[in-house]
Amino acid sequence: MTDASPAAPAITSPGRAILHRFFTSPLGVTGATILGVLIFCAILAPFIAPHDPTEIFWDHIQQPPSATFLFGTDELGRDILSRVIWGARVSLWVVICSIGIALLIGSLIGLISGYVGGVVDDVIMRINDAILAFPMLILALGIIAVFGPTLTNAILAIAVVNIPGFARVVRGQVLSVREHEFVEAARSIGLGPAAILLRHILPYVSGNVIVYASLRASAALITESALAFLGLGVKPPTPTWGSMLATAMQYWDAWWMSIFPGLAIFIAVLGLNFTGDALLDAKQATESDN
């Protein structure tokens, strides 16, 4: 360690190189900062929200922004700032769970489809194409129509909608590495398909999967808000940005009721988009270096 010559090239893993690029790009830093604030709000909501998000202030019904209520109050006299902060919880939770589930199941399907090939691959890809033919929101609506409008079902619906995309990305990757020498070497020493897939191919495709997940996250957030907006998400009084906007539609004069929750969605989506784009850029730049 101590006698390592300074002239030796620094060996960094591709993951580190990507992260370094990400955190030195303005887009990445902005995106990460926005996400950081969101996660901070979501986790610490009970401590940083000035009021209880469901507490009703009878003598402050629909008040415009003031010193006590920075974002104003809604039609029931609840503090909008506190509701916006708590709203980050539901939205982030839905995004993390749905994209997480889609990532796990989709990757597994893609691994199997790409590695096994043949009829299995054909059948899986046909079903994949059929699901991809549904506009995302329409498919989510169909699933919620069947299982009923609840938070869990919203998560499941958004997960299902995203599974084919992950399956497709992973399958494409598997097809391109399946014949590589390192896979052949693993096979030659007698490893079974499961071990080859999980220990040798999975690490190889994981970079692309993570980048894809970050790109899908903003679409998941918009779908969640759209479902809540249509009244097909979380039940009141739990605050969500989408349902706050739906309520605001009945009170056009109270502009603060529609401006702040909408801004929250806008900034969150922007943060996720920046993060996704910067990750993709960093990954492509790192790959073209090697």
Binding site: S258, G262, V269, N273
Partner: peptide, 14 residues
């Protein structure tokens, strides 16, 4: 980039 981050329902409301 901003326009793509505005959800349809909020844009309509504005």
């Amino acid at each position: 980039m901003s326009s793509m981050a505005v959800p349809y329902f909020w844009a309509g409301m504005l």
